[in-house]
Design a binder for these strands. Sequence first.
DNA 1: TCGATTTTAAACAAAA
DNA 2: GTTTTGTTTAAAATCG
Length: 599
Amino acid sequence: MMQESGTETKSNGSAIQNGSSGGNHLLECGSLREGRSNGEAPAVDVGAADLAHVQQQQALQVARQLLLQQQQQQQVSGLKSPKRNDKQPALQQQQVATQQLAFQQQLLQMQQLQQQHLLSLQRQGLLTIQPGQPALPLQPLAQGMIPAELQQLWKEVTSAHTAEETTGNNHSSLDLTTTCVSSSAPSKTSLIMNPHASTNGQLSVHTPKRESLSHEEHSHSHPLYGHGVCKWPGCEAVCEDFQSFLKHLNSEHALDDRSTAQCRVQMQVVQQLELQLAKDKERLQAMMTHLHVKSTEPKAAPQPLNLVSSVTLSKSASEASPQSLPHTPTTPTAPITPVTQGPSVITTTSMHTVGPIRRRYSDKYNVPISSADIAQNQEFYKNAEVRPPFTYASLIRQAILESPEKQLTLNEIYNWFTRMFAYFRRNAATWKNAVRHNLSLHKCFVRVENVKGAVWTVDEVEFQKRRPQKISGNPSLIKNMQSSHAYCTPLNAALQASMAENSIPLYTTASMGNPTLGNLASAIREELNGAMEHTNSNESDSSPGRSPMQAVHPVHVKEEPLDPEEAEGPLSLVTTANHSPDFDHDRDYEDEPVNEDME
DNA sequence: TCGATTTTAAACAAAA
DNA sequence: GTTTTGTTTAAAATCG
Protein backbone atom coordinates (compact mmCIF):
# COMPACT_ATOMS: atom_id res chain seq x y z
CA MET A 1 0.00 0.00 0.00
CA MET A 2 2.89 2.26 -0.43
CA GLN A 3 2.14 3.04 -3.96
CA GLU A 4 2.26 6.47 -5.32
CA SER A 5 -1.28 7.22 -4.50
CA GLY A 6 -1.57 9.75 -1.83
CA THR A 7 2.00 10.74 -1.93
CA GLU A 8 2.01 10.73 -5.65
CA THR A 9 0.25 13.96 -6.20
CA LYS A 10 1.74 15.86 -3.41
CA SER A 11 5.38 16.30 -3.83
CA ASN A 12 8.42 14.62 -5.04
CA GLY A 13 9.74 14.49 -1.59
CA SER A 14 7.68 11.60 -0.51
CA ALA A 15 8.16 9.92 -3.77
CA ILE A 16 11.83 10.14 -3.36
CA GLN A 17 11.56 8.51 -0.06
CA ASN A 18 9.56 5.82 -1.64
CA GLY A 19 12.09 5.40 -4.34
CA SER A 20 13.54 1.98 -4.22
CA SER A 21 16.62 2.69 -6.14
CA GLY A 22 18.87 3.20 -3.23
CA GLY A 23 18.73 -0.14 -1.64
CA ASN A 24 17.97 -1.97 -4.76
CA HIS A 25 20.75 -0.37 -6.49
CA LEU A 26 23.11 -1.59 -3.92
CA LEU A 27 21.74 -5.01 -4.42
CA GLU A 28 22.36 -4.75 -8.08
CA CYS A 29 25.79 -3.57 -7.41
CA GLY A 30 26.54 -6.45 -5.24
CA SER A 31 25.12 -8.86 -7.63
CA LEU A 32 27.00 -7.51 -10.50
CA ARG A 33 30.19 -7.39 -8.71
CA GLU A 34 29.74 -10.87 -7.54
CA GLY A 35 29.10 -11.91 -11.04
CA ARG A 36 32.26 -10.41 -12.16
CA SER A 37 34.20 -11.82 -9.34
CA ASN A 38 33.19 -15.26 -10.30
CA GLY A 39 36.10 -15.56 -12.50
CA GLU A 40 35.31 -14.19 -15.87
CA ALA A 41 36.45 -10.71 -15.31
CA PRO A 42 38.30 -10.37 -12.09
CA ALA A 43 38.80 -6.93 -10.85
CA VAL A 44 42.41 -6.23 -11.39
CA ASP A 45 43.63 -3.21 -9.70
CA VAL A 46 47.29 -3.52 -10.01
CA GLY A 47 49.49 -2.04 -12.57
CA ALA A 48 50.69 -4.05 -15.47
CA ALA A 49 54.21 -3.95 -14.18
CA ASP A 50 53.13 -5.16 -10.80
CA LEU A 51 51.12 -7.88 -12.32
CA ALA A 52 53.94 -8.96 -14.49
CA HIS A 53 56.18 -9.04 -11.50
CA VAL A 54 53.77 -11.10 -9.52
CA GLN A 55 53.33 -13.42 -12.40
CA GLN A 56 57.01 -13.79 -12.73
CA GLN A 57 57.22 -14.63 -9.10
CA GLN A 58 54.47 -17.11 -9.47
CA ALA A 59 56.11 -18.67 -12.44
CA LEU A 60 59.24 -19.12 -10.47
CA GLN A 61 57.23 -20.47 -7.64
CA VAL A 62 55.61 -23.02 -9.86
CA ALA A 63 58.87 -24.14 -11.21
CA ARG A 64 60.40 -24.35 -7.78
CA GLN A 65 57.67 -26.51 -6.54
CA LEU A 66 57.84 -28.72 -9.52
CA LEU A 67 61.44 -29.33 -8.90
CA LEU A 68 61.08 -29.76 -5.22
CA GLN A 69 58.33 -32.19 -5.75
CA GLN A 70 60.43 -34.18 -8.11
CA GLN A 71 63.24 -34.18 -5.69
CA GLN A 72 61.03 -35.35 -2.95
CA GLN A 73 59.64 -38.09 -5.03
CA GLN A 74 63.06 -39.19 -5.89
CA GLN A 75 64.04 -39.14 -2.30
CA VAL A 76 61.07 -41.18 -1.34
CA SER A 77 61.78 -43.64 -4.08
CA GLY A 78 65.15 -44.38 -2.68
CA LEU A 79 67.38 -41.92 -4.34
CA LYS A 80 68.06 -40.19 -1.17
CA SER A 81 70.93 -41.40 0.86
CA PRO A 82 71.59 -40.50 4.45
CA LYS A 83 74.93 -39.07 3.59
CA ARG A 84 74.48 -37.85 0.14
CA ASN A 85 76.53 -34.73 -0.19
CA ASP A 86 79.43 -33.27 -2.04
CA LYS A 87 81.26 -36.49 -1.81
CA GLN A 88 79.28 -37.77 -4.70
CA PRO A 89 79.40 -34.89 -7.12
CA ALA A 90 79.26 -37.07 -10.19
CA LEU A 91 76.16 -38.86 -9.10
CA GLN A 92 74.53 -35.68 -8.03
CA GLN A 93 75.43 -33.97 -11.21
CA GLN A 94 73.89 -36.76 -13.11
CA GLN A 95 70.80 -36.50 -11.04
CA VAL A 96 70.74 -32.81 -11.48
CA ALA A 97 71.05 -33.15 -15.19
CA THR A 98 68.23 -35.62 -15.26
CA GLN A 99 66.08 -33.46 -13.14
CA GLN A 100 66.84 -30.43 -15.19
CA LEU A 101 65.79 -32.26 -18.26
CA ALA A 102 62.61 -33.37 -16.62
CA PHE A 103 62.06 -29.89 -15.38
CA GLN A 104 62.38 -28.43 -18.81
CA GLN A 105 60.04 -31.03 -20.13
CA GLN A 106 57.55 -30.07 -17.51
CA LEU A 107 57.88 -26.48 -18.46
CA LEU A 108 57.33 -27.37 -22.04
CA GLN A 109 54.25 -29.31 -21.14
CA MET A 110 52.91 -26.46 -19.12
CA GLN A 111 53.56 -24.14 -21.95
CA GLN A 112 51.73 -26.34 -24.37
CA LEU A 113 48.80 -26.70 -22.06
CA GLN A 114 48.75 -23.02 -21.57
CA GLN A 115 48.73 -22.35 -25.26
CA GLN A 116 45.99 -24.86 -25.78
CA HIS A 117 43.91 -23.23 -23.16
CA LEU A 118 44.53 -19.81 -24.58
CA LEU A 119 43.56 -21.03 -27.98
CA SER A 120 40.43 -22.37 -26.51
CA LEU A 121 39.71 -19.11 -24.83
CA GLN A 122 40.37 -17.28 -28.00
CA ARG A 123 37.99 -19.46 -29.90
CA GLN A 124 35.35 -18.76 -27.33
CA GLY A 125 35.91 -15.10 -27.72
CA LEU A 126 37.12 -14.78 -24.20
CA LEU A 127 40.44 -13.64 -25.35
CA THR A 128 41.20 -11.54 -28.30
CA ILE A 129 44.63 -10.99 -29.51
CA GLN A 130 45.15 -7.56 -30.80
CA PRO A 131 46.82 -7.10 -34.11
CA GLY A 132 49.82 -5.66 -32.46
CA GLN A 133 50.13 -8.53 -30.12
CA PRO A 134 51.68 -11.83 -30.84
CA ALA A 135 49.16 -14.34 -31.99
CA LEU A 136 49.61 -16.14 -28.75
CA PRO A 137 51.69 -15.46 -25.75
CA LEU A 138 54.43 -17.67 -26.92
CA GLN A 139 56.98 -16.21 -24.70
CA PRO A 140 58.21 -19.10 -22.63
CA LEU A 141 56.08 -19.28 -19.56
CA ALA A 142 55.10 -15.72 -19.70
CA GLN A 143 57.73 -13.33 -18.65
CA GLY A 144 61.22 -14.14 -17.89
CA MET A 145 61.30 -17.86 -18.29
CA ILE A 146 64.17 -17.65 -20.62
CA PRO A 147 66.99 -20.19 -20.45
CA ALA A 148 69.03 -17.93 -18.24
CA GLU A 149 66.13 -17.65 -15.94
CA LEU A 150 65.73 -21.36 -15.92
CA GLN A 151 69.32 -21.72 -14.92
CA GLN A 152 68.81 -19.22 -12.20
CA LEU A 153 65.73 -21.02 -11.10
CA TRP A 154 67.52 -24.27 -11.14
CA LYS A 155 70.22 -22.84 -8.96
CA GLU A 156 67.66 -21.64 -6.52
CA VAL A 157 65.99 -24.95 -6.34
CA THR A 158 69.11 -26.95 -6.01
CA SER A 159 70.45 -24.67 -3.37
CA ALA A 160 67.22 -25.03 -1.53
CA HIS A 161 67.52 -28.70 -1.86
CA THR A 162 70.98 -28.59 -0.42
CA ALA A 163 69.90 -26.32 2.38
CA GLU A 164 67.09 -28.60 3.20
CA GLU A 165 69.38 -31.52 3.36
CA THR A 166 72.01 -29.82 5.39
CA THR A 167 69.51 -28.69 7.94
CA GLY A 168 68.10 -32.12 8.14
CA ASN A 169 64.76 -30.81 7.27
CA ASN A 170 63.35 -33.63 5.31
CA HIS A 171 59.76 -33.54 6.22
CA SER A 172 57.41 -33.16 3.46
CA SER A 173 56.21 -29.69 4.17
CA LEU A 174 57.77 -27.21 1.89
CA ASP A 175 58.62 -23.86 3.19
CA LEU A 176 59.70 -21.70 0.41
CA THR A 177 60.76 -18.97 2.69
CA THR A 178 63.74 -21.10 3.26
CA THR A 179 64.13 -21.40 -0.39
CA CYS A 180 63.92 -17.75 -0.92
CA VAL A 181 66.24 -16.87 1.84
CA SER A 182 68.80 -19.27 0.69
CA SER A 183 68.40 -18.42 -2.88
CA SER A 184 70.45 -16.08 -4.83
CA ALA A 185 67.52 -13.83 -5.33
CA PRO A 186 66.85 -12.32 -1.96
CA SER A 187 64.48 -9.87 -3.42
CA LYS A 188 62.05 -12.62 -4.11
CA THR A 189 60.93 -12.86 -0.58
CA SER A 190 57.51 -12.95 0.92
CA LEU A 191 56.65 -15.91 -1.17
CA ILE A 192 55.26 -17.88 1.63
CA MET A 193 52.97 -20.72 1.21
CA ASN A 194 50.17 -20.67 3.64
CA PRO A 195 49.32 -23.71 5.68
CA HIS A 196 46.75 -24.78 3.21
CA ALA A 197 48.89 -24.16 0.27
CA SER A 198 51.67 -26.10 1.81
CA THR A 199 49.56 -29.15 1.66
CA ASN A 200 47.58 -28.61 -1.39
CA GLY A 201 50.08 -26.99 -3.57
CA GLN A 202 48.09 -23.88 -3.99
CA LEU A 203 50.19 -21.13 -5.34
CA SER A 204 49.65 -17.78 -3.91
CA VAL A 205 51.45 -14.80 -2.68
CA HIS A 206 50.61 -14.29 0.90
CA THR A 207 51.40 -11.49 3.14
CA PRO A 208 52.03 -12.04 6.80
CA LYS A 209 48.72 -10.40 7.48
CA ARG A 210 47.00 -12.87 5.30
CA GLU A 211 48.94 -15.58 7.02
CA SER A 212 47.54 -14.56 10.33
CA LEU A 213 43.99 -14.98 9.28
CA SER A 214 42.09 -17.33 11.44
CA HIS A 215 40.65 -20.40 9.96
CA GLU A 216 37.22 -18.93 10.05
CA GLU A 217 38.31 -15.83 8.30
CA HIS A 218 40.20 -17.82 5.83
CA SER A 219 37.28 -19.96 5.02
CA HIS A 220 35.36 -16.86 4.23
CA SER A 221 38.02 -15.20 2.23
CA HIS A 222 39.63 -18.01 0.36
CA PRO A 223 39.57 -16.93 -3.23
CA LEU A 224 39.12 -20.47 -4.38
CA TYR A 225 36.18 -21.14 -2.18
CA GLY A 226 32.85 -19.46 -2.18
CA HIS A 227 29.23 -20.31 -1.82
CA GLY A 228 30.12 -23.87 -1.10
CA VAL A 229 31.77 -24.29 -4.43
CA CYS A 230 35.34 -24.73 -5.41
CA LYS A 231 36.28 -21.86 -7.59
CA TRP A 232 39.24 -23.44 -9.14
CA PRO A 233 38.94 -22.66 -12.81
CA GLY A 234 36.75 -25.20 -14.45
CA CYS A 235 36.00 -27.09 -11.29
CA GLU A 236 32.95 -25.83 -9.45
CA ALA A 237 32.89 -28.86 -7.23
CA VAL A 238 30.49 -28.56 -4.36
CA CYS A 239 32.16 -28.52 -0.98
CA GLU A 240 29.92 -28.37 1.97
CA ASP A 241 32.37 -26.76 4.28
CA PHE A 242 35.82 -25.40 4.24
CA GLN A 243 37.35 -28.61 5.45
CA SER A 244 35.88 -30.59 2.65
CA PHE A 245 37.00 -27.87 0.35
CA LEU A 246 40.53 -28.29 1.59
CA LYS A 247 40.30 -31.99 1.08
CA HIS A 248 39.02 -31.40 -2.36
CA LEU A 249 41.82 -29.01 -3.08
CA ASN A 250 44.37 -31.50 -1.90
CA SER A 251 42.95 -34.32 -3.85
CA GLU A 252 41.79 -32.69 -7.03
CA HIS A 253 44.07 -29.74 -7.34
CA ALA A 254 47.27 -31.03 -5.97
CA LEU A 255 50.52 -29.90 -7.35
CA ASP A 256 50.76 -31.59 -10.67
CA ASP A 257 51.15 -30.70 -14.26
CA ARG A 258 47.55 -29.99 -14.71
CA SER A 259 47.19 -27.72 -11.75
CA THR A 260 50.31 -25.82 -12.49
CA ALA A 261 49.30 -25.43 -16.06
CA GLN A 262 45.94 -24.17 -14.99
CA CYS A 263 47.64 -21.79 -12.70
CA ARG A 264 49.73 -20.54 -15.50
CA VAL A 265 46.73 -20.16 -17.69
CA GLN A 266 44.97 -18.20 -15.03
CA MET A 267 47.94 -15.95 -14.81
CA GLN A 268 47.82 -15.45 -18.50
CA VAL A 269 44.15 -14.73 -18.39
CA VAL A 270 44.67 -12.13 -15.75
CA GLN A 271 47.48 -10.68 -17.71
CA GLN A 272 45.43 -10.52 -20.83
CA LEU A 273 42.63 -8.85 -19.00
CA GLU A 274 44.97 -6.38 -17.53
CA LEU A 275 46.45 -5.62 -20.88
CA GLN A 276 43.06 -5.28 -22.39
CA LEU A 277 41.93 -3.03 -19.63
CA ALA A 278 44.92 -0.84 -20.10
CA LYS A 279 44.32 -0.65 -23.80
CA ASP A 280 40.70 0.14 -23.39
CA LYS A 281 41.45 2.78 -20.85
CA GLU A 282 43.86 4.31 -23.23
CA ARG A 283 41.34 4.07 -25.99
CA LEU A 284 38.70 5.67 -23.86
CA GLN A 285 41.00 8.47 -22.93
CA ALA A 286 41.82 9.10 -26.54
CA MET A 287 38.18 9.07 -27.46
CA MET A 288 37.27 11.45 -24.72
CA THR A 289 40.13 13.68 -25.61
CA HIS A 290 39.05 13.64 -29.17
CA LEU A 291 35.53 14.55 -28.16
CA HIS A 292 36.76 17.31 -25.91
CA VAL A 293 35.49 15.55 -22.91
CA LYS A 294 36.54 17.00 -19.66
CA SER A 295 36.86 14.15 -17.33
CA THR A 296 39.02 14.18 -14.30
CA GLU A 297 37.57 10.91 -13.18
CA PRO A 298 37.96 8.31 -15.84
CA LYS A 299 36.43 5.75 -13.58
CA ALA A 300 33.35 7.77 -12.93
CA ALA A 301 30.08 6.28 -13.90
CA PRO A 302 29.84 6.20 -17.63
CA GLN A 303 27.26 8.37 -19.15
CA PRO A 304 25.37 8.09 -22.31
CA LEU A 305 26.81 10.61 -24.62
CA ASN A 306 23.54 11.43 -26.14
CA LEU A 307 22.04 12.22 -22.84
CA VAL A 308 24.26 15.13 -22.33
CA SER A 309 24.01 16.76 -25.64
CA SER A 310 20.46 15.94 -26.33
CA VAL A 311 18.74 14.58 -23.35
CA THR A 312 19.64 14.95 -19.78
CA LEU A 313 18.04 14.43 -16.51
CA SER A 314 14.83 16.12 -15.97
CA LYS A 315 14.37 18.68 -13.35
CA SER A 316 12.81 16.30 -10.97
CA ALA A 317 15.50 13.78 -11.46
CA SER A 318 18.21 16.26 -10.89
CA GLU A 319 16.59 17.45 -7.78
CA ALA A 320 15.67 14.08 -6.57
CA SER A 321 18.96 12.38 -6.99
CA PRO A 322 21.63 14.93 -7.39
CA GLN A 323 24.29 12.39 -6.73
CA SER A 324 22.82 9.43 -8.34
CA LEU A 325 24.94 9.45 -11.37
CA PRO A 326 28.37 9.64 -9.93
CA HIS A 327 27.30 7.10 -7.42
CA THR A 328 26.28 4.56 -9.91
CA PRO A 329 28.98 2.01 -9.70
CA THR A 330 27.15 -0.71 -11.44
CA THR A 331 26.96 0.81 -14.82
CA PRO A 332 28.64 -1.66 -17.02
CA THR A 333 29.02 0.60 -19.91
CA ALA A 334 27.75 3.77 -21.26
CA PRO A 335 25.32 3.87 -24.06
CA ILE A 336 27.16 4.29 -27.21
CA THR A 337 24.75 6.55 -28.81
CA PRO A 338 26.82 8.96 -30.74
CA VAL A 339 26.79 12.66 -30.46
CA THR A 340 25.57 14.18 -33.59
CA GLN A 341 25.31 17.77 -32.74
CA GLY A 342 28.83 18.81 -32.65
CA PRO A 343 31.38 18.41 -29.95
CA SER A 344 29.94 18.56 -26.58
CA VAL A 345 31.64 18.91 -23.32
CA ILE A 346 30.79 16.07 -21.09
CA THR A 347 31.53 16.28 -17.47
CA THR A 348 30.54 14.15 -14.63
CA THR A 349 28.61 16.97 -13.14
CA SER A 350 27.09 18.45 -16.20
CA MET A 351 23.98 16.44 -15.82
CA HIS A 352 23.22 18.07 -12.58
CA THR A 353 24.03 21.57 -13.49
CA VAL A 354 21.98 21.87 -16.58
CA GLY A 355 18.68 22.00 -14.83
CA PRO A 356 15.54 20.93 -16.52
CA ILE A 357 16.39 19.71 -19.92
CA ARG A 358 14.20 17.76 -22.16
CA ARG A 359 14.64 15.46 -25.00
CA ARG A 360 14.88 16.66 -28.48
CA TYR A 361 13.38 15.16 -31.48
CA SER A 362 16.77 14.79 -32.91
CA ASP A 363 17.35 12.13 -30.35
CA LYS A 364 15.65 9.95 -32.81
CA TYR A 365 18.64 10.11 -34.98
CA ASN A 366 21.03 9.57 -32.20
CA VAL A 367 19.69 6.18 -31.58
CA PRO A 368 22.13 3.36 -31.62
CA ILE A 369 21.78 1.00 -34.43
CA SER A 370 23.22 -2.35 -33.85
CA SER A 371 22.08 -5.01 -31.54
CA ALA A 372 25.16 -4.44 -29.51
CA ASP A 373 24.09 -0.86 -29.07
CA ILE A 374 20.74 -1.86 -27.84
CA ALA A 375 22.12 -4.43 -25.59
CA GLN A 376 24.68 -2.13 -24.18
CA ASN A 377 22.23 0.65 -23.71
CA GLN A 378 19.84 -1.68 -22.09
CA GLU A 379 22.44 -2.74 -19.67
CA PHE A 380 23.41 0.79 -19.05
CA TYR A 381 19.93 1.98 -18.30
CA LYS A 382 19.22 -1.01 -16.23
CA ASN A 383 22.00 -0.15 -13.92
CA ALA A 384 22.54 3.53 -14.18
CA GLU A 385 20.01 5.91 -12.88
CA VAL A 386 20.07 7.88 -16.03
CA ARG A 387 16.98 9.05 -17.66
CA PRO A 388 16.43 7.17 -20.86
CA PRO A 389 16.13 9.44 -23.86
CA PHE A 390 12.81 8.03 -24.86
CA THR A 391 9.38 9.39 -24.46
CA TYR A 392 6.96 7.80 -22.14
CA ALA A 393 4.82 6.85 -25.05
CA SER A 394 7.67 5.04 -26.69
CA LEU A 395 8.55 3.22 -23.56
CA ILE A 396 5.01 2.23 -22.89
CA ARG A 397 4.62 1.02 -26.38
CA GLN A 398 7.80 -0.94 -26.18
CA ALA A 399 6.75 -2.51 -22.95
CA ILE A 400 3.46 -3.58 -24.40
CA LEU A 401 4.93 -4.89 -27.60
CA GLU A 402 7.48 -6.90 -25.75
CA SER A 403 4.81 -8.75 -23.92
CA PRO A 404 3.84 -12.12 -25.35
CA GLU A 405 0.29 -11.11 -25.91
CA LYS A 406 1.03 -7.52 -26.80
CA GLN A 407 -0.93 -6.32 -23.89
CA LEU A 408 -0.10 -5.31 -20.40
CA THR A 409 -1.85 -4.10 -17.37
CA LEU A 410 -0.86 -0.83 -15.95
CA ASN A 411 1.01 -2.47 -13.17
CA GLU A 412 2.88 -4.64 -15.61
CA ILE A 413 3.89 -1.56 -17.47
CA TYR A 414 5.11 -0.11 -14.24
CA ASN A 415 7.13 -3.20 -13.61
CA TRP A 416 8.64 -3.08 -17.03
CA PHE A 417 9.78 0.44 -16.40
CA THR A 418 11.41 -0.37 -13.14
CA ARG A 419 12.92 -3.49 -14.51
CA MET A 420 14.44 -1.99 -17.57
CA PHE A 421 15.47 1.38 -16.24
CA ALA A 422 17.14 2.15 -13.01
CA TYR A 423 15.97 5.67 -13.41
CA PHE A 424 12.41 4.58 -12.90
CA ARG A 425 13.15 2.98 -9.64
CA ARG A 426 12.71 6.26 -8.00
CA ASN A 427 10.30 9.11 -8.33
CA ALA A 428 7.60 6.58 -8.87
CA ALA A 429 4.87 9.08 -8.24
CA THR A 430 6.07 11.26 -11.04
CA TRP A 431 6.67 8.82 -13.78
CA LYS A 432 3.74 6.62 -12.96
CA ASN A 433 1.51 9.55 -13.26
CA ALA A 434 3.13 10.31 -16.55
CA VAL A 435 2.60 6.79 -17.71
CA ARG A 436 -1.05 6.94 -16.90
CA HIS A 437 -1.30 10.29 -18.47
CA ASN A 438 0.28 9.06 -21.66
CA LEU A 439 -1.89 6.01 -21.78
CA SER A 440 -4.92 8.14 -21.63
CA LEU A 441 -3.63 10.89 -23.80
CA HIS A 442 -2.44 9.01 -26.83
CA LYS A 443 -4.95 7.37 -29.02
CA CYS A 444 -2.48 4.72 -29.93
CA PHE A 445 -2.89 3.17 -26.55
CA VAL A 446 -6.08 1.24 -26.41
CA ARG A 447 -7.57 0.02 -23.23
CA VAL A 448 -9.10 -3.39 -23.54
CA GLU A 449 -11.27 -5.04 -21.01
CA ASN A 450 -9.90 -8.41 -20.32
CA VAL A 451 -10.97 -11.33 -18.23
CA LYS A 452 -8.46 -10.36 -15.65
CA GLY A 453 -9.31 -6.74 -15.93
CA ALA A 454 -8.18 -3.96 -18.13
CA VAL A 455 -5.10 -4.26 -20.27
CA TRP A 456 -3.46 -1.83 -22.57
CA THR A 457 -2.56 -2.50 -26.15
CA VAL A 458 -0.95 -0.53 -28.90
CA ASP A 459 -2.70 0.53 -32.01
CA GLU A 460 0.15 0.54 -34.45
CA VAL A 461 -1.81 2.22 -37.16
CA GLU A 462 -2.73 4.99 -34.85
CA PHE A 463 0.75 5.15 -33.55
CA GLN A 464 2.24 5.58 -36.94
CA LYS A 465 -0.37 7.96 -38.17
CA ARG A 466 1.07 10.76 -36.31
CA ARG A 467 2.80 13.32 -38.36
CA PRO A 468 4.75 11.13 -40.69
CA GLN A 469 5.71 13.99 -42.92
CA LYS A 470 7.85 15.79 -40.49
CA ILE A 471 10.95 13.76 -40.67
CA SER A 472 11.22 13.21 -44.34
CA GLY A 473 11.05 16.88 -44.92
CA ASN A 474 13.87 17.83 -42.67
CA PRO A 475 17.18 17.49 -44.43
CA SER A 476 19.22 18.26 -41.38
CA LEU A 477 17.59 15.55 -39.41
CA ILE A 478 18.05 13.15 -42.22
CA LYS A 479 21.64 14.03 -42.39
CA ASN A 480 21.98 13.52 -38.71
CA MET A 481 20.32 10.22 -38.95
CA GLN A 482 22.54 9.02 -41.68
CA SER A 483 25.68 10.22 -40.12
CA SER A 484 24.66 8.70 -36.91
CA HIS A 485 24.03 5.47 -38.61
CA ALA A 486 27.32 5.64 -40.34
CA TYR A 487 29.61 6.18 -37.48
CA CYS A 488 27.95 4.59 -34.60
CA THR A 489 28.63 1.20 -36.00
CA PRO A 490 32.36 1.32 -35.47
CA LEU A 491 31.80 2.74 -32.06
CA ASN A 492 29.60 -0.12 -31.21
CA ALA A 493 31.90 -2.57 -32.75
CA ALA A 494 34.67 -1.22 -30.63
CA LEU A 495 32.68 -1.53 -27.51
CA GLN A 496 31.38 -4.89 -28.40
CA ALA A 497 34.81 -6.08 -29.16
CA SER A 498 36.06 -4.70 -25.96
CA MET A 499 33.34 -6.31 -23.99
CA ALA A 500 33.79 -9.57 -25.73
CA GLU A 501 37.48 -9.46 -25.30
CA ASN A 502 37.07 -8.97 -21.65
CA SER A 503 34.24 -11.42 -21.47
CA ILE A 504 32.23 -9.08 -19.38
CA PRO A 505 29.50 -11.13 -17.83
CA LEU A 506 26.99 -8.43 -18.31
CA TYR A 507 27.47 -8.55 -21.94
CA THR A 508 27.39 -12.22 -22.41
CA THR A 509 24.82 -13.27 -19.94
CA ALA A 510 22.50 -10.38 -19.64
CA SER A 511 22.67 -8.51 -22.83
CA MET A 512 23.14 -11.19 -25.33
CA GLY A 513 21.22 -13.72 -23.42
CA ASN A 514 18.17 -11.65 -23.05
CA PRO A 515 15.70 -12.32 -25.78
CA THR A 516 14.18 -8.99 -25.13
CA LEU A 517 17.31 -7.30 -26.21
CA GLY A 518 17.52 -9.18 -29.37
CA ASN A 519 14.00 -8.22 -29.94
CA LEU A 520 14.82 -4.65 -29.33
CA ALA A 521 17.70 -4.89 -31.67
CA SER A 522 15.68 -6.26 -34.50
CA ALA A 523 12.98 -3.78 -33.82
CA ILE A 524 15.25 -0.85 -33.94
CA ARG A 525 16.83 -2.10 -37.05
CA GLU A 526 13.45 -2.19 -38.53
CA GLU A 527 12.72 1.26 -37.44
CA LEU A 528 15.96 2.56 -38.69
CA ASN A 529 15.67 0.80 -41.95
CA GLY A 530 12.23 2.17 -42.29
CA ALA A 531 13.54 5.58 -41.63
CA MET A 532 16.32 5.13 -44.06
CA GLU A 533 14.00 3.77 -46.60
CA HIS A 534 11.78 6.68 -46.16
CA THR A 535 14.62 9.07 -46.27
CA ASN A 536 16.16 7.59 -49.28
CA SER A 537 12.94 7.52 -51.12
CA ASN A 538 12.74 11.21 -50.62
CA GLU A 539 16.24 11.95 -51.59
CA SER A 540 18.12 9.40 -53.47
CA ASP A 541 17.60 5.76 -53.72
CA SER A 542 21.16 4.89 -53.11
CA SER A 543 21.52 3.94 -49.54
CA PRO A 544 25.12 3.73 -48.60
CA GLY A 545 24.36 4.61 -45.07
CA ARG A 546 22.55 1.50 -44.17
CA SER A 547 24.43 -0.99 -46.15
CA PRO A 548 26.83 -2.00 -43.41
CA MET A 549 24.06 -2.79 -41.10
CA GLN A 550 22.08 -4.71 -43.56
CA ALA A 551 25.04 -6.56 -44.71
CA VAL A 552 25.39 -7.98 -41.31
CA HIS A 553 21.82 -8.05 -40.21
CA PRO A 554 19.50 -8.23 -43.13
CA VAL A 555 16.18 -7.20 -41.82
CA HIS A 556 12.86 -6.47 -43.16
CA VAL A 557 12.54 -2.91 -44.27
CA LYS A 558 9.31 -1.45 -43.30
CA GLU A 559 7.75 1.20 -45.35
CA GLU A 560 6.49 3.15 -42.50
CA PRO A 561 6.15 6.77 -41.82
CA LEU A 562 8.19 7.99 -39.00
CA ASP A 563 6.80 10.17 -36.40
CA PRO A 564 8.44 11.98 -33.62
CA GLU A 565 6.75 9.96 -31.03
CA GLU A 566 8.18 6.70 -31.93
CA ALA A 567 11.46 8.10 -32.87
CA GLU A 568 12.77 9.41 -29.68
CA GLY A 569 15.16 6.72 -28.98
CA PRO A 570 16.32 3.20 -29.16
CA LEU A 571 13.29 1.94 -27.44
CA SER A 572 10.81 3.72 -29.54
CA LEU A 573 10.55 0.95 -31.93
CA VAL A 574 8.24 -0.21 -34.56
CA THR A 575 8.74 -3.62 -33.34
CA THR A 576 7.55 -7.00 -34.17
CA ALA A 577 8.17 -7.95 -30.64
CA ASN A 578 7.25 -11.47 -30.02
CA HIS A 579 9.42 -12.55 -27.19
CA SER A 580 8.32 -13.34 -23.81
CA PRO A 581 9.31 -10.64 -21.45
CA ASP A 582 10.05 -13.01 -18.71
CA PHE A 583 13.09 -11.39 -17.45
CA ASP A 584 14.87 -14.40 -16.25
CA HIS A 585 18.07 -12.59 -16.75
CA ASP A 586 16.97 -9.75 -14.64
CA ARG A 587 17.06 -11.51 -11.41
CA ASP A 588 18.70 -8.50 -9.95
CA TYR A 589 15.32 -6.94 -9.91
CA GLU A 590 13.05 -9.86 -9.74
CA ASP A 591 13.19 -10.10 -6.06
CA GLU A 592 12.69 -6.50 -5.54
CA PRO A 593 9.47 -5.71 -3.79
CA VAL A 594 9.24 -2.66 -5.93
CA ASN A 595 8.53 -4.76 -8.91
CA GLU A 596 5.77 -6.67 -7.33
CA ASP A 597 4.22 -3.85 -5.54
CA MET A 598 5.59 -0.53 -6.36
CA GLU A 599 6.54 1.24 -3.23
C1' DT B 1 7.92 34.07 -32.20
C1' DC B 2 4.95 30.23 -32.79
C1' DG B 3 3.12 25.75 -33.04
C1' DA B 4 3.78 21.02 -31.90
C1' DT B 5 5.20 17.90 -28.64
C1' DT B 6 6.52 16.16 -24.26
C1' DT B 7 6.80 16.28 -19.39
C1' DT B 8 5.16 17.27 -14.96
C1' DA B 9 1.73 18.32 -11.69
C1' DA B 10 -2.67 18.12 -10.14
C1' DA B 11 -7.61 17.26 -9.53
C1' DC B 12 -11.12 14.18 -9.91
C1' DA B 13 -13.79 9.95 -10.42
C1' DA B 14 -14.55 5.09 -10.74
C1' DA B 15 -13.20 0.57 -9.69
C1' DA B 16 -10.98 -2.86 -6.83
C1' DG C 1 -11.93 3.95 3.71
C1' DT C 2 -7.94 3.11 1.08
C1' DT C 3 -5.60 2.19 -2.97
C1' DT C 4 -5.34 1.70 -7.79
C1' DT C 5 -6.61 2.96 -12.20
C1' DG C 6 -8.05 6.13 -15.57
C1' DT C 7 -9.25 10.82 -17.37
C1' DT C 8 -8.62 15.47 -17.91
C1' DT C 9 -6.64 20.07 -17.50
C1' DA C 10 -2.94 23.14 -17.16
C1' DA C 11 1.62 24.89 -17.18
C1' DA C 12 6.35 24.59 -18.36
C1' DA C 13 9.98 23.18 -21.34
C1' DT C 14 11.98 22.02 -25.73
C1' DC C 15 12.64 22.12 -30.56
C1' DG C 16 12.20 23.20 -35.44
